[in-house]
Design a binder for these strands. Structure first.
Length: 470
RNA sequence: GGCGACAUAGCCAAGUGGUAAGGCAGAGGACUGCAAAUCCUUUACCCCCGGUUCGAAUCCGGGUGUCGCCUCCA
């Protein structure tokens, strides 16, 4: 097993070696549940799910944790605007996230902790940092003292001095140093608060991830992932808190997923160009969205537009067609013994494709390369379907099995797209066949048109009529 | 200002030393009653200028351009 992955911490691609193979401890920074997730969020979650699936495909046992941030400034502000409690807001958007994720074929993680469910662990972690002199009280808040943690800035390759120069100092700050960040915030009127040894209050943003990941996965994770914008300060701060408290490496690998822009612009509330998954799924197929995401490398920034999605849709259709056609071929395939040695589809061809698929994916999850392999194989298989008849059941099944196998990882093809043959449609098709036999093209074409209007597309193959949803 | 990423055909996109995968769109052809699907053929001065090398899209230096982070944005 030689998967290579790019580690943000070392800025290089290295062979992946988890601490205790075959187990992989994988933590993903999940959504702040103050709104519906947008297409950019979706990219992160789709990619992380893909990484998990691929690691499992390669024999690892992945223990995956993805949190919900259900208490922070944005949550409080939003709840205030909607005039509901923070926990009501959280419940609503957690449920919404689950629906969206399921629609996008994102498998649920093994654990989905909420920050508010880990207050005791957070308090104990802060206590440890205070005891070690890495944190200090400022007013009723508790801050992490970045000056006491020399490696600060290592993950994001930032120099402390430079960071200091660029840092903004708010008036009325209770920090000693502009880079210090809040571990615990003193209670403010009307805001949720919990008891702690240093008064009522709530956790800062960064501490929750450290507390939850270490509690569920242990002091050292194998992989920690999130969007690139989390590198600094969020992940830098997590490293400081966690390694400061335990003295052990926090995560062996850091994976950061590139940004998704909308018409070359960052999505933002102020520009009013936020595209939610919910909105997109009304008009688009989830497989098309997934295929779009996976057609570029996860680290490169990608642009999103209706036109690009349409382009992706047509490409994906090629693979979908292939699988549909194979399903159709299976209906007439013979069970003749022994494979035709001269067949363009030999088991060697499939093994070769699998090898190249794995090689691409092993190389830092090169999904674009992996998909290309599927296209190349598709051409060979189409050639077989075109030239060899009757089809041999064993060959058709082998190919289908292969696509099913890789699709367990990528999930870009719908294997349940064939539908029940409706009585009425069956009759219309039979009537059309009758007309065609008589050479009555006008009637045949009219029936085809009528079915097309109803979304049924007919294809006259040399081996019988096929129909599918348009 | 600091840190970092990226620049490959009309479009999307792989490719880290040996004269450029794959997809979309386009053109031509085959198949078809016509379609659809499919197959075949076809489309690249790899941003610019230097350097290293027998040889560079790929390494090094410089430039230009786009973008991200440094503001609790995925």
């Amino acid at each position: 097993m030689t998967i290579k992955l790019y580690n943000t911490a070392t800025r290089s691609k290295k062979i992946f070696r988890p601490l205790h193979p075959p187990e992989v401890k994988f933590y993903v920074c999940g959504p702040t549940v103050y709104d519906y997730i947008h297409i950019g969020n979706a990219r992160v979650f789709i990619v992380c799910d893909l990484i998990r699936r691929y690691l499992e495909y390669r024999g690892y046992r992945v223990k995956m944790v993805q949190n919900y941030t259900d208490i922070d400034d944005k949550m409080i502000r939003r709840a205030g605007e909607e005039n509901i409690s923070v926990s009501e807001l959280a419940e609503h958007y957690i449920a919404a996230y689950r629906q969206d994720a399921e629609a996008l074929k994102i498998r649920p993680p093994d654990y989905s902790p909420r920050a508010t469910g880990y207050i005791p662990q957070i308090i104990s972690l802060i206590g440890k940092l205070l005891a070690k002199g890495l944190a200090y009280p400022g007013g009723g808040d508790i801050y992490f003292d970045t000056s006491r943690f020399p490696p600060y800035g290592k993950l994001s390759s930032q120099d402390r001095e430079e960071l200091m120069a660029g840092a903004r100092v708010e008036p009325g700050e209770k920090k000693k140093n502009p880079l210090d960040f809040a571990l615990w915030k003193e209670e403010k009127p009307g805001e949720p608060a919990w008891e702690s040894p240093w008064g009522r209050g709530r956790p800062g943003w960064h501490i929750e991830c450290s507390a939850m990941s270490m509690h569920l996965l242990g002091d050292t994770l194998d992989i920690h992932a999130g969007g690139t914008d989390l590198i600094f300060p969020h992940h830098e701060n997590e490293v400081a808190q966690s390694e400061g408290a335990t003295g052990k490496p926090f995560s062996r690998y850091w994976i950061h997923i590139g940004y998704l822009n909308l018409d070359h612009q960052k999505m933002s509330k102020s520009l009013g160009n936020v595209l939610t998954v919910r909105h997109l799924l009304k008009r688009h197929n989830p497989y098309d969205l997934r295929f779009f995401m996976l057609s570029a490398h996860y680290r490169s920034p990608v642009n999103f537009s209706e036109m690009l999605l349409e382009q992706a849709r047509r490409g994906r259709l090629r693979l979908q067609e292939l699988v549909d056609n194979l399903g159709h071929a299976l209906q007439t395939a013979s069970t003749a013994m022994g494979k035709d040695k001269k067949s363009p589809v030999s088991s060697g061809l499939l093994d070769g494709a699998r090898e190249r698929f794995v090689a691409a994916m092993d190389d830092d999850f090169n999904t674009a390369g992996a998909v290309a392999v599927l296209f190349e194989l598709a051409r060979e298989v189409n050639l077989y379907l075109k030239q060899e008849y009757p089809y041999q059941r064993e060959i058709v099944e082998d190919v289908l099995r292969f696509y099913r196998e890789v699709n367990d990882v990528l999930d870009i093809i719908d294997f349940n797209s064939s539908l029940e043959m409706d009585q009425e449609i069956r009759r219309a098709i039979a009537a059309r066949e009758e007309a065609r036999k008589k050479g009555d093209w006008a009637v045949a074409d009219r029936i085809r048109e009528e079915l097309l209007d109803r979304g049924i597309l007919l294809e006259d193959t040399p081996h019988g009529v096929r129909w599918k949803r348009k």
